[in-house]
Design a protein around this nucleic acid. Sequence first.
DNA 1: CCTCCGCGTGCTAACGTTAGCACTGCCTGG
DNA 2: CCAGGCAGTGCTAACGTTAGCACGCGGAGG
Lengths: 339, 339
Amino acid sequence: MITTRDIAERLGISVSTVGRALADDSRISEETKFRVRQAAAEMGYVANRAARMMRGASSNVVALVIPDIRNSFYSAIAHELSKNMEAQGYQLMLSETDDDRMVELRHLRELSANRVAGIIIVPTARPHSDSVKLLRAVPHLQLLRRHPSLGSQWFGVDDHEALRRATAHLVAQGHTRIAYVGGPVELPTGAERLRGFRSALQEGGLPDDAGRAELGPPASLAHGRETVRRLLEDPRAPTALVLGSIQLTLGVLEELSQQGVKVPEELSVVGFGDEPGFSWWGPGLTTVGLPIEEMATGCALWLMRRLTTKPSNDGPYTSVSPGSLVVRGSTAPPGGRQA
Amino acid sequence: MITTRDIAERLGISVSTVGRALADDSRISEETKFRVRQAAAEMGYVANRAARMMRGASSNVVALVIPDIRNSFYSAIAHELSKNMEAQGYQLMLSETDDDRMVELRHLRELSANRVAGIIIVPTARPHSDSVKLLRAVPHLQLLRRHPSLGSQWFGVDDHEALRRATAHLVAQGHTRIAYVGGPVELPTGAERLRGFRSALQEGGLPDDAGRAELGPPASLAHGRETVRRLLEDPRAPTALVLGSIQLTLGVLEELSQQGVKVPEELSVVGFGDEPGFSWWGPGLTTVGLPIEEMATGCALWLMRRLTTKPSNDGPYTSVSPGSLVVRGSTAPPGGRQA
DNA sequence: CCTCCGCGTGCTAACGTTAGCACTGCCTGG
DNA sequence: CCAGGCAGTGCTAACGTTAGCACGCGGAGG
């Protein structure tokens, strides 16, 4: 690799002069700058950021720590983030935790060793105490899920309100046996969504046994399929389904298609997230649309400001809109179409 | 940030000893090692990889340079790659080019400055000459698209064969007006897929005007919609459609659903890629399935070997299977279902 | 004529880590 | 009893870049 020293030797000048010329320092004559730049270009010089970092400069890398990039919500976030950061000269590091706190910890160690400038993280249910320590030392922002030990810098969705609205939509249509399939209560989002589901039932004046919650790994398509299979076998199968994660929704839709369940006649369904494909599934999936782009640009802007301004910026958190209910054809009063 | 020096001062020993203790050097007494490790853990020491890199060590970061992470093919690749690399202690850097050679160049400059250990890239149609220079200096592997100036390390799909099979399937059913909607010929993949399309027509003994190619940005869902709209307005609209990219397929499916086009009665469709949702679209989408996981693990393994072994490893390239045609309900002889 | 100033450049140290070499005791074999 | 070796540790230089300080030179003002 070419260094400033190589350039200096070739031009018969000092390393300092080369460095200053490349930094466009006002003290260097235009002629020298020109010669240095020319030589640098010819020799294919690329500054070594590791060396620069050792002089106290911070890195230009920001990490995104998420469960799984294949989840289209996260890939959308990654995309927006990447776009925003690139414009500011930052690079994006991608770390997948697979919702495993040990993997999360390993990643955080590496990110820390690499001295990333900032971290945007969707934390696992109960981050390892070392993970907490590591995060504390770096500007970070929690996304979606919020774990109290990680501070109050959080950017999320009003999960409670989102599921409340989704469920209320079914209650309003007269359903009295509604199942919720979502993530575990250990996850903050899981807990909130379940609470929203329960709130809607209660507000609708339904008895306690009207609702039924099936909780499990939220990132597993297979789990969605199995759960819906189990539910349908039940003699007192629900007449409506509310879903609490994108992956679960994908799994459930596949299974319902495959089993030829008539929606909404036999079963009403409200999904979570809005993927390409949800609009053309069966009669069109009624679903909770999420403000992905707003969230991603919000995150990017927050982090950029946090990294460029000196004082330990600390707006406590920003909750984004609860998501909008997109009503399509997959919901109807129990027993058939028509209200 | 805590450094080895801090630990050394606290324990009243030298920096070298601390360094060696942490590296588990055999010359250091067990007792000293223990004290150093304890102190390091207590103080939250994390080695600075930038400093280590300056001593000649290479970085543990590998970059993935792709057009758009939201494309599920790329997110699947990113996932597999990330999983494989994490196991080896590597981190993944994500760079999106948006198929813009200038953005690509900017990213490559940054990656180069950060001294990434390796790069896996889906190059733009005509990479900037500086991009070529930069890539030459780093172990890299082309994915899917292959640009001659970037060397022969390539991991891809047999695009010609994939599209040939897809088209042949339609020809076999008797279609004589077939349209291909795909990426531009400037992209190696675009050229190959178009060639495959043409080959199948020729092999089927169809006249030159049987086929019609509509080329445009492959990553644009909107372009897929517009193209199909335009095709349907044509008095001599095709009776079958072959698609040449995942995003275009998504767009086309949405438009066909929205317009209520009867598939396969009015139009047969063969898609590209196999997304969740393709199976439940209309009568089920006949499509070209891609060996995503095999490719991703293949890439990861190649790169790992390339990075860990000394000699400039140079298997010229590896072409993966042509993709398997997944036959569902969206294809039938012209004019209706049934053969 | 001398001093002072500013322009352009060079020297040197520093960042955190690592590796080569040197040093100090102590123990063993001749 | 002495030489040599080894275990355990310290000193120092080096990686590439940058910033503070110093230096030389020429011109302007006293």
